[in-house]
Amino acid sequence: MRLLWMKILINGLITVHFLVIFAGASFSGAVVSSVILSLIAYVIGDRLILKITNNVVATALDLGLASLFFILVSGVTIGELSMVELLTLVAGLGVLEYYFHRTFGANLVSSAA
């Protein structure tokens, strides 16, 4: 559970600020989007994929999930994102995800959900 909260906090550092400044999202919309993305990425990327593959595959999956998520919710809970903004946001998340997996990967694989 501690790792989930850390992931929400780490992802929030990038996504909330980015969505409020560049996408014109409300603060609450950006927080909700960040938390939902973090929950999805934690369950699928960290709990399932990282256990059976490696850091690079789990990070790539997290990038794909983030891209798909922001494309689907763009204009609903957050403002419109251009392709450059989307790629910049996802690249920033990718760097954080890579180091998150690298730092906490052993705990993610061995601990129970």
Rank of each mutant, 00 (worst) to 15 (best):
A41I: 03
V32I: 15
V56A: 15
L68Q: 09
A58D: 06
L48I: 15
T59R: 08
I40Q: 05
I52D: 03
I49D: 02
L65T: 02
A58M: 08
V32H: 01
I71L: 13
G45C: 08
V32S: 03
A66P: 09
L37Q: 02
V35P: 02
S34C: 06
A58L: 06
S38P: 01
I40T: 11
V57K: 08
L61V: 15
F69A: 04
L61E: 05
A66Y: 08
F70W: 06
L63W: 04
A58T: 06
R47M: 15
F69H: 05
V32G: 01
N55H: 12
L48P: 00
L39N: 07
S67F: 10
L37T: 00
L72F: 09
T53R: 13
A41H: 02
L65W: 02
G64E: 08
S33E: 05
I36K: 04
V35E: 09
L63N: 11
R47S: 11
T53A: 15
A60C: 13
I36Q: 06
V32D: 01
V43R: 12
S34D: 02
T53L: 12
L68W: 11
T59S: 12
I40F: 14
L63H: 02
S38K: 01
F69V: 02
V32A: 09
L50H: 12
V31Y: 03
S67W: 07
V32K: 01
Y42I: 09
G45W: 02
N55G: 07
F70L: 06
A60S: 14
S38A: 12
Y42W: 15
A60Q: 10
K51H: 14
I36A: 13
A58I: 05
L37Y: 06
G45M: 05
R47C: 12
L61N: 05
I71P: 00
V56H: 11
L72M: 10
S33F: 00
L63D: 05
R47N: 11
L50T: 07
F70Q: 00
L37M: 04
A41W: 01
R47G: 09
S34V: 00
T53C: 12
I44R: 05
N55V: 14
L72D: 02
I44W: 08
V43L: 14
A60I: 14
Y42S: 06
L68M: 15
A60T: 13
G64Y: 04
N55L: 12
I36F: 12
L65V: 10
I52L: 10
S34P: 01
K51E: 15
D46P: 01
A58S: 14
D46K: 01
I36T: 12
I52E: 07
T59H: 09
F70R: 00
L50A: 09
K51F: 07
T59I: 11
N55P: 13
L63E: 08
D46M: 10
V35T: 07
L39T: 04
I49V: 14
Y42E: 03
V35C: 07
N54E: 14
S38I: 00
G64K: 10
F69R: 05
A66M: 11
D46L: 07
L63S: 10
I40G: 05
V31L: 09
I49T: 02
L39F: 11
L68N: 09
G64D: 10
V43K: 12
N54D: 15
L63Y: 05
S67K: 02
F70M: 04
